[in-house]
Simulated assay, not measured.
Amino acid sequence: MLATDVPDVLALLNWMDDAPEREVFSPEARSEGELKVECEDCTCLVDADEEGVLAYCALSPFRDGLVMEGPISDGGQVGPLLRHALERADGLPVYAFAARDNLPVREALEAAGFAPMHTTDFYSAPLSRLTPHACAPAGHRIVHHLPLATYRELFRASEDTWAERLNWTPEQVDEHFARPDVRLVALLRGEQPVGFAELEFNAEDARADVTYVAVHPAERGQGYGLTLLALAAAEADTRPELRTLRVRAHDHMKPARALYARAGLTHCRSVVTYMKEGDEDV
Rank of each mutant, 00 (worst) to 15 (best):
T244L: 04
A218K: 13
R189N: 08
I72Q: 06
G70D: 00
R262H: 07
C39T: 15
T238L: 11
C39D: 12
E280L: 07
R88S: 10
P193Y: 06
A236N: 03
A178F: 02
E28K: 15
V215E: 02
A96S: 04
D237N: 09
E50W: 15
L259T: 02
R22D: 04
G75W: 07
L81A: 04
V24Y: 06
F114Q: 07
Q222Y: 12
A263F: 01
A208D: 01
G91N: 14
L187N: 00
M253P: 10
T131W: 01
P193C: 03
T227K: 08
A96R: 04
A98R: 01
T119N: 13
P240S: 11
P71H: 04
A96Q: 02
K254Y: 15
D41S: 15
E21N: 12
R207A: 11
R207N: 05
G221K: 00
R183D: 05
P147E: 07
C268W: 14
A261P: 10
L127G: 07
S73P: 01
P240A: 09
A178Q: 04
D5L: 01
E110D: 05
T161I: 12
V173G: 05
L146A: 03
A236H: 06
E235M: 00
Y274G: 06
V78L: 06
V53I: 06
L184Y: 00
C44G: 12
V46D: 00
N167C: 10
R179G: 04
D18Q: 09
E200W: 06
V215M: 00
D281K: 13
V173T: 12
H250E: 15
V182P: 01
Y151H: 05
G33S: 13
V9H: 03
L66F: 10
L146C: 00
E34C: 13
F177E: 04
L66A: 09
V272K: 07
C42R: 13
F155V: 09
M117W: 11
D279F: 07
V37S: 12
T244V: 13
L184S: 03
T4Q: 14
A186L: 01
T119K: 14
L259E: 03
A157L: 05
E34V: 08
D205C: 09
P170V: 02
D121G: 12
S128I: 11
G223Q: 03
N102C: 06
A163G: 12
L245Y: 12
M117N: 11
L109K: 10
K254S: 15
S60M: 13
E175M: 13
